[in-house]
């Protein structure tokens, strides 16, 4: 564990808590993409299959349980509890255009052609594009609530911090995972224009409103 990865995990944790607070306080899921949350649930389920078979640390297990638990709770809030406030018309990204290519790529490009490794690789590739339905929804509605912007900033920062973690681990431990790094770079790049909007607008108290 290093400071970059710890900050990354805390940023990820913060993002999930911000999202849950937004939903619970406003009792609304307006502006939130249910499809992205379904993709995140797929990512965590595929990645944490070893939750019961390999024990790394208390921290690792607790975080995995928390991430899996909260993402399914979020889906419950979107599609059941606060279903009336879910904006399905604007949440129209075709996720099959993500899942099929990512699934195929995981089969072709992986570290080892073994079921658990391919599923892990699938979760890494899927995570890098899982935010697209959410960004697409914001571009369609033309704006994002400030709290949703904070959620996205924390979520985007988490993988950017992981990139720093991988640089540190390369020099400190000789650890290097090309698949995770490349997917992490793609994932972070997808947030760049949002980061720009966040820093130029939200930090000045304005609201994010894309030219619709």
């Amino acid at each position: 564990m290093n400071i970059f990865r710890l900050c990354g995990d805390m940023s990820h944790l913060a993002a999930i808590i911000i999202l849950l607070l937004k939903m619970w306080k406003t009792r609304s899921v307006a502006g939130i993409s249910g499809k992205s949350q379904i993709l995140f649930a797929t990512v965590f389920t595929a990645r944490y299959l070893d939750l019961f078979t390999s024990f790394i640390s208390i921290y690792n297990t607790c975080m995995k349980v928390f991430f899996i638990g909260t993402v399914y709770f979020t889906i419950y809030l979107i599609y059941m509890k606060f279903k009336a406030t879910y904006d399905s018309n604007h949440d129209s990204f075709r996720v099959e255009f993500l899942i099929v290519p990512v699934g195929g790529l995981a089969f072709l490009v992986n570290h080892e052609f073994a079921p658990l490794e391919i599923i892990w690789t699938f979760s890494i590739y899927l995570e890098s594009v899982a935010i697209l339905p959410q960004l697409f929804m914001i571009s369609k509605t033309g704006e994002a609530e400030t709290i949703t912007s904070h959620y996205l900033f924390a979520l985007g920062s988490y993988r950017a911090l992981y990139l720093c973690n991988w640089i540190y681990r390369y020099y400190a431990e000789g650890f290097f995972d090309l698949i995770a790094v490349v997917a992490g770079v793609v994932q972070t790049i997808l947030y760049c224009d949002f980061f720009y909007l966040y820093i130029t607008k939200v930090m000045k108290g304005k609201k994010i409103s894309l030219p619709a």
Binding site: S54, G174, F175, D177
Partner: peptide, 10 residues
């Protein structure tokens, strides 16, 4: 320098 340990990251 491939990955040495198992999957120890989240």
């Amino acid at each position: 320098k491939k990955k040495k340990k198992g999957k120890d990251e989240l």
